[in-house]
Design a binder for these strands. Structure first.
Ligand SMILES: [Zn+2]
Ligand SMILES: [Zn+2]
Ligand SMILES: [Zn+2]
Ligand SMILES: [Zn+2]
Lengths: 132, 132
DNA sequence: TAACAGTATGTAATAATATAACATTTATAA
DNA sequence: TTATAAATGTTATATTATTACATACTGTTA
């Protein structure tokens, strides 16, 4: 059962922008885009991003410092994320593969760590770029 | 068969520092530490870091913007990395688990992507922090 | 309603991370 | 030795993210 979060004004503006974007967006690109809507300072953007990440509406692509809307409604609130990144055209998408997520969510080793979250980034070439 | 890379002067200074460190090091912490050895500018540090990452002597912990020496001699030259991160004490270590690396290296889906590299970060609580 | 707690906002300043551009030097190999 | 690649030095600047502080909104409960 997923809690419904009513997004605040800034959160909604920023989520809508990211959600409509074809690619992951960087914080300052977001800032530039929402200035006409009255969001003027980096901190306003970062605060909204933090919250949106926290509630799983968006994810951060760590290797790119960019943010993407969650493409996976059943995604476990940002606790289990996997992405596919084309190193040639920078096309990025969220991987939704139940075997993979089960495997990783159940992963444990003999280190004594109790894992509660993971983030995985795969890199390679997409269909298009492969055939060039 | 692993190619032997003869590290240059700056690369060696910086690798030795990271290798001796108990924790992952951030670029400007590295800079501060090597200034007495004549490395004065950020770019000198970043260039050495880039090379060391490229040849697999160190890895970047993306979620922390920090660098750690490879703890896994058989690590496939930074093509397949996994880390364990305690969110309480920030203890970080490289996971060396052949089943995991096999599973991920062989991962493929029906997206048409050809994967050649991955980076995985697990988050949780270490033994010590769990029992607090 | 009033008081409170929690969340969100606005604004300015600054910190932390990373790269561009250009000149020079050193190592490697044909 | 000549050419090429790799590494270095230096200055400036771009990009990403946070601190600090004041104010306002939202929902809950006395
Ligand atoms: Zn998701
Ligand atoms: Zn591509
Ligand atoms: Zn390694
Ligand atoms: Zn710990």
């Amino acid at each position: 059962m997923q809690k419904i979060h009513n997004l605040s004004k800034n959160q909604k503006i920023i989520f809508d922008l990211i959600d409509k974007s074809a690619e992951p967006m960087k914080a300052y690109a977001i800032l530039f885009n929402v200035q006409k809507k009255g969001i003027k300072a980096p901190l306003q953007v970062y605060r909204a991003l933090d919250k949106l990440v926290e509630i799983g509406k968006i994810h951060k692509i760590e290797s790119r410092n960019a943010f993407i809307a969650c493409q996976n409604s059943s995604c476990q609130i940002s606790k289990a994320t996997a992405f596919s990144i084309c190193e040639s055209c920078e096309n990025i998408s969220e991987i939704s593969n139940s075997k993979l997520s089960k495997y990783l969510s159940n992963f444990s080793d003999n280190s004594g760590m109790k894992y509660s979250k993971y983030n995985l980034e795969f890199f390679g070439l997409c269909k298009k770029c492969k055939s060039k």
